[in-house]
Computed example of a mutant assay.
Amino acid sequence: MEDWYVIYTKSGNELNVKYLLDTQLADENVRVLVPRRKLVERRKGQKVVTLKTVFPGYVFIYIDMNDVNYYRIVEIPGVIGVLKNDYYPVPVPADEMKVVLSLTEKSEVIDYSTVVYIGGFVKVIDGPLKGLEGHIIDIDKRKHRARVRISIMGEPRVVQLGVQQLEGAMDDTDKGVESL
C-alpha cells in the first residue's frame, strides 16, 4: 500500500537524494517531494530571489514501503534513514501531509502569498498560505517573510515562507500575529 514517508538526509543534501531516488526507483510508482520556497534576500545591496528548502534534512516519498523498497532507499548515498517507530517505517498522517501537498500543489517551489494588513490583523488573500491565517506566527515586512507553524509527524515545525505585495499599514505596534 502506497503512502507518504519521511526520509532523513544531511541538511543541504535533499535535492541530491531526490535525484538519486527518482533515478534508482524510476520503475516503481514513486513520487519524491522536496518542498522549497522563494525568498527575497539582500546581497551586496541588491534584492535577489533565492530558493530555500522548507524542511531541511527531510525528503518526502510516496511509495509502497515494503522490505525491498526500504533497503533500496536506505542504501542510497546521503540517506540517513527513514522515519520509523521501533521496527517499521511510519507513514506521515494524511491530515499533516495534506498541508504540505496544498502548499506544493502547483510545483515543489512555494511561491509568494499576498498579504493585507487590516489594523493589527493579517489577512492572506492569495497564494499558498491562503486559509492558513491561524498558523501564522509573525511577518517580517522588511524581509517579506512569514513564519508559519506546520505540524509534521505530530511535531510543530516553524517554516519561513515568502510574502509579496504587503498592503495596508503596519506600524511597530502590530506585532504578535500569533493570536489570529
Rank of each mutant, 00 (worst) to 15 (best):
I73P: 05
D111W: 02
P77F: 08
Y62N: 13
I150F: 02
L129A: 07
P93W: 06
Y87C: 13
L166R: 03
F60R: 01
D86Q: 10
Y112L: 11
L129W: 00
L103W: 01
I73V: 15
V100H: 00
D64K: 14
F60W: 01
F121C: 00
E75M: 14
A169T: 10
I76G: 07
R147G: 02
G168N: 03
R72C: 08
A169E: 12
V100S: 05
V68N: 13
D171T: 11
E75I: 03
A146R: 00
S113R: 01
E105W: 06
V100T: 07
L166D: 00
K141Y: 10
A169Y: 07
L83V: 15
I110L: 06
I61R: 04
K130Y: 08
I152G: 07
A169W: 06
E75Y: 08
D126Y: 10
T114Y: 02
I152S: 09
L132G: 09
G168S: 07
K123S: 07
R157A: 09
I152L: 15
L101I: 07
V158K: 04
L101D: 10
D140V: 10
V99N: 05
E133V: 02
A169L: 12
V163L: 06
E155I: 14
Y112K: 03
I73T: 06
M153N: 15
K143L: 14
I136Q: 01
A169D: 11
V163N: 06
I73F: 00
V68I: 14
R145Y: 03
M97H: 05
D64H: 14
I125L: 12
T173G: 10
D172A: 14
V122M: 03
I76T: 12
V100M: 04
L132S: 07
I76K: 02
V159D: 00
K106P: 02
P156Y: 09
Q165A: 13
G162Q: 03
I150R: 01
V90T: 15
E105P: 01
V124A: 06
V68A: 14
L83I: 14
Y87T: 15
E108T: 06
R72T: 08
S113Y: 00
I73H: 02
Y87E: 13
D172K: 13
V99A: 08
R142Y: 09
G78L: 09
T114I: 11
Y117I: 09
G78P: 07
A146E: 09
I61E: 10
Y71V: 08
D174K: 04
Q165P: 00
F121W: 06
Y71W: 12
I139A: 04
P89F: 08
P91E: 08
Y71P: 00
P128V: 08
N69V: 13
T114Q: 12
P93V: 09
E108C: 06
Q165L: 11
G134L: 04
N85C: 10
P77W: 05
Y70K: 15
G168V: 02
K130M: 11
Y112F: 11
I61P: 04
L83E: 14
L83C: 13
H135T: 09
Q164A: 09
G127H: 02
I80S: 10
P156S: 11
V90P: 02
E96Y: 07
D126A: 11
D171Q: 02
I150E: 04
Y71N: 14
L132A: 07
D111I: 05
V159N: 01
E105D: 10
D171W: 02
D111G: 12
L103P: 02
Q164C: 10
D95C: 11
E167A: 13
V92P: 00
Q160F: 07
I63Y: 04
D138C: 10
D172N: 12
